[in-house]
Design a protein around this nucleic acid. Structure first.
Lengths: 139, 139
DNA sequence: GCTACAATTCGCCATATAACGAATTACCAA
DNA sequence: TTGGTAATTCGTTATATGGCGAATTGTAGC
């Protein structure tokens, strides 16, 4: 019923209509990131972050690259995603000095300073330590 | 918990994340419109259209003006809503030649050509003629 | 092959959203 | 003052969305 241009537009606007996805787009201004780095900053389950990234991908607001078991995401080159830079600019202006975005930026700097391998190891560790998962090991 | 800038930004992105509201924004490029004119083009219940307009208003994507029983909506002056023109431009580009938007534009031209009084009268008439409302008059 | 593991997909639940009609509000005109 | 009326608010319903953990997928290394 609806045209592709309308569907594509709504994919983009709906993709932007979520705080976590806006945070991801702001983070990606720092360059290419792998899923575990985004998980670390947002403090959400990997499955949740993966879903958000697939929504951003489907809306052509981010592009991804697989390297072995690792998946990297970045903002598209402006040649491909011509509409992305204006959107990013708009968000940047609107969220100038926003505390959540500031906190994310700081945390991301720390996260980027360490090896993703270690990051994933620590995330696994935290998950194993979670009391909610005790019964699995004990049962 | 969240800052006002984040809340304001998400009010805007969520307001854009709906087809009917995008259609309304595109229509308002033709100038100030009253609710019944928008109702006529979108073919939705007045209560539904009113809700959409209040969401766009809360997001500062449109401004309204009351004149007697009539309410008029328009895009804000760029002095007030500085971010609106870039958004409109983005939507315009993304929806260039979109059939829904084209159809809306054509229908709006016809709608603008006639007196809003007549428009409302016809809408009331249609509502009264609706078989679903028969039992009210008969019961 | 087998094991480990980063990421994704799936199934489920809680909440948010879009739609309508009914009721209400605010205003004009008789 | 009263009746009519454009718009809004309210209450309800159906669908969409965001979150998690469990299961699955695809890859690297033994």
């Amino acid at each position: 019923m609806n045209s592709e241009s309308m569907r594509a537009t709504l994919r983009a606007t709906k993709a932007l209509a979520d705080q976590q996805r806006v945070r991801i787009l702001m983070m990606l201004q720092a360059g290419e990131l792998c899923v575990c780095q985004i998980v670390e900053v947002l403090e959400l389950a990997p499955s949740t972050v993966s879903k958000h990234l697939s929504i951003l991908s489907a809306a052509d607001l981010v592009v991804s690259r697989k390297e072995g078991r690792w998946a990297y995401f970045r903002l598209p080159d402006s040649a491909i995603g011509a509409m992305v830079p204006p959107i990013i600019k708009w968000l940047r202006d609107a969220l100038n000095n926003d505390p959540t975005i500031e906190r994310d930026r700081k945390k991301l700097q720390a996260v980027q300073a360490c090896d993703p391998e270690d990051l994933c190891r620590r995330q696994r560790q935290r998950n194993d330590d979670n009391p909610k998962n005790q019964e699995i090991r004990n049962g």
